[in-house]
């Protein structure tokens, strides 16, 4: 198992809608390990989705515990298989970038809190409530499973403060 190369847009795998994992097997566990290795070996990454390493199964890993923004509020190392968002609340805007879209960032508004259901690495049903940076990271990674990049979500140009309705 090892860190794998991050796929860069326009690699078509990044625009692919991924398939749910049906039968957990050894290859699934290998994928999970590769995702974790890829995330931790990059040094700064807080999440990787399967399509970013060329696999179209619905699996993401997230870990914001080592980052300044997520340090105080996190669930540690998360392996999420077939994740679904059950509930979302609030709004949070962050300037996002993505390893698969180098040299570009944009302001993206996402839910501030999400309740997510998923299978963990051992195949057990889990439901967690994540907020803040961890919630943003989960939503960003889960977007990859539907072929969405942050570019599809940019809510405004960074100078949007002056754009408003005429009086």
């Amino acid at each position: 198992m090892a860190a794998r190369e991050i796929r860069i847009y326009p690699d078509p795998v990044l625009k692919t809608i991924c398939s749910p994992v049906t039968i957990p097997d050894d290859s699934l566990d290998a994928l999970v390990q590769d995702l974790l290795d890829t995330m931790y070996q990059s040094g700064h990454s807080v999440g990787v989705a399967a399509p970013q390493i060329g696999d179209t199964r619905r699996v993401v890993v997230v870990d914001v515990s080592a980052s300044k923004l997520g340090r105080d509020e996190n669930h540690g190392s998360l392996v999420m298989i077939n994740p679904e968002i059950l509930d979302r609340e609030g709004k949070k805007t962050m300037r996002e970038g993505c390893m698969s879209v180098p040299d570009y960032t944009g302001n993206v508004t996402r839910a501030e809190m999400v309740v997510v259901q998923f299978l963990d690495r051992q195949g057990r049903e889990q439901v967690i409530r994540a907020s803040g940076f961890e919630a943003v990271a989960i939503q960003h990674e889960m977007d990859h499973l539907d072929g969405n990049l942050f570019l599809d979500r940019v809510s405004n140009l960074k100078t949007d403060v002056f754009r408003r309705k005429k009086r």
């Binding site: 700064h44 923004l69 962050m94 300037r95 996002e96 970038g97 390893m99 940076f133």
Partner: peptide, 11 residues
């Protein structure tokens, strides 16, 4: 005048 950090995150 206010100054604040822009939190730019690579995900």
């Amino acid at each position: 005048i206010t100054v604040r950090a822009i939190e730019s995150v690579e995900l």
